[in-house]
């Protein structure tokens, strides 16, 4: 396909989105990520049956925490896509990058210390 997606996205691979833990999501923000999104398989297609459904609940839980502490729950999202949907992968990568750019850098970073163009959104 040779499709390109924004270079600010850093991919962290996990065996299943069911492995994604609330603490992983929080640590990403602690380590300076401006946004995080989880890219899981289509609902109903999980090899482990419910991994992606659990990941969704954990993302929702983390959204609430981020809202509570003023980081903003909008900085985190979960998307479902199949391994055959390369175009969708790119679309989501662009969509999330735009969203995070609009929100600005992670508020834990000191003002003025963020380098432009560096918003290492994460995806798995």
């Amino acid at each position: 396909m040779r499709l390109s997606y924004p270079t600010n996205i850093k991919i962290i691979k996990v065996p299943c989105t069911g492995k994604v833990d609330v603490l992983y999501l929080l640590k990403s923000f602690q380590n300076g990520a401006d946004g995080v999104y989880v890219a899981g398989c289509m609902e109903g297609d999980c090899h482990y049956l419910t991994g992606n459904l659990r990941a969704r609940k954990r993302v929702e839980y983390t959204k609430k925490i981020l809202d509570d502490i003023g980081i903003g729950g909008d900085r985190i999202e979960i998307y479902n896509m199949s391994a055959a949907q390369g175009a969708r992968f790119v679309e989501v990568a662009n969509e999330m990058t735009e969203r995070i750019k609009a929100l600005g850098p992670n508020p834990i970073k000191k003002r003025g210390s963020t380098e432009s163009g560096k918003d290492p959104s994460k995806e798995e």
Partner: peptide, 10 residues
């Protein structure tokens, strides 16, 4: 611990 340190850093 993660949440508290995020909140304080903010």
């Amino acid at each position: 611990a993660s949440v508290l340190s995020l909140a304080r850093k903010k």
